[in-house]
């Protein structure tokens, strides 16, 4: 059986007259930890949306090989993750429970077992103590962990994290990267981590994918030349760590 989870085959995406991605081909394998990098407007978020099936492809196709059902197989942490709305009236356990709704049939009620799954993932991510806290009362780093728990509670085979650390301070950011690395190693969950921060991505991931509306580089992180990425309009935030 192939270890490939997802194969993108010659995909092209267009918004109106603007071609955002051109002829992109790659495969994500079981246990991969891929850093998806590129300057603003390079097509990173578009590629993520394409992988999630949220936008139509103009050409090519995406094959979901070993994801037994699409909605259950991919966990997603959106780019604008930290809500910042202190009035949003929901406890942490309610937010994390959303991650299980994709597996439910009408009228989508959460069972005792589901609540246990929520407790287990909160415990795993070290935030069980926040279970009954209002999401808006948490710090940025805590909110990010809650939303990661929401993405992971259904035990996806692939986690896509879209700019997950952009709103976090450097220390919390390092903790977050360590946590993701552990999830990848211990659970064998494949990770695609989108960022414009070259150095930290290169340090934590095993593969790099550099986009500039087309696939410029896809290979081992230790063979990726940071200067090459910077030449493509990206930044090196090494001093943050």
């Amino acid at each position: 059986m192939t270890s490939k989870l997802i194969e993108a085959k010659n995909i092209t995406v267009r918004y109106g007259n603007n071609v955002v991605l051109t002829d992109i081909s790659f495969a994500i394998e079981k246990g991969d930890y891929i850093g998806l990098v590129g300057a603003n407007g390079s097509g990173k978020s578009t590629l993520v949306k394409a992988l999630l099936g949220l936008i139509p492809l103009e050409k090519g196709k995406i094959v979901y090989n070993d994801l037994y059902k699409f909605e259950h197989g991919i966990g997603y942490l959106p780019q604008v993750a930290v809500t910042g709305n202190t009035l949003f009236p929901a406890e942490v356990r309610e937010i994390v429970g959303i991650g299980l709704l994709g597996q439910k049939k009408f009228p989508k009620r959460l069972t005792k077992e589901d609540h246990l799954k929520v407790d287990t993932i909160l415990d795993r991510l070290g935030i069980i103590g926040l279970k009954h806290k209002k999401i808006g009362d948490l710090s940025g780093g805590q909110q990010q962990r809650v939303l990661l728990a929401r993405a992971m509670v259904s035990h996806p085979k692939l986690l896509i994290l879209d700019e997950p650390t952009s709103a976090l301070d450097p220390r919390v950011r390092a903790d977050f990267f360590n946590l993701i690395e552990e999830i990848n190693k211990v659970d064998q969950t494949s990770i695609v981590l989108v960022s414009h921060d070259l150095s930290s991505i290169k340090r934590y991931t095993r593969k790099m994918m550099l986009l500039d509306r087309e696939l410029v580089y896809f290979g081992p992180s230790d063979e990726f030349d940071l200067n090459f990425g910077m030449a493509k309009g990206m930044h090196n935030h090494e001093h943050d760590y």
Partner: peptide, 23 residues
């Protein structure tokens, strides 16, 4: 509100995530 409560709650909190999980 009773029968679509969880869907509506999820969409109100995060529409992009809700789409991804098939709501």
């Amino acid at each position: 509100v009773i029968f679509f409560y969880n869907d509506l709650f999820a969409i109100t909190h995060d529409e992009a995530f809700s789409s991804v999980i098939g709501i």
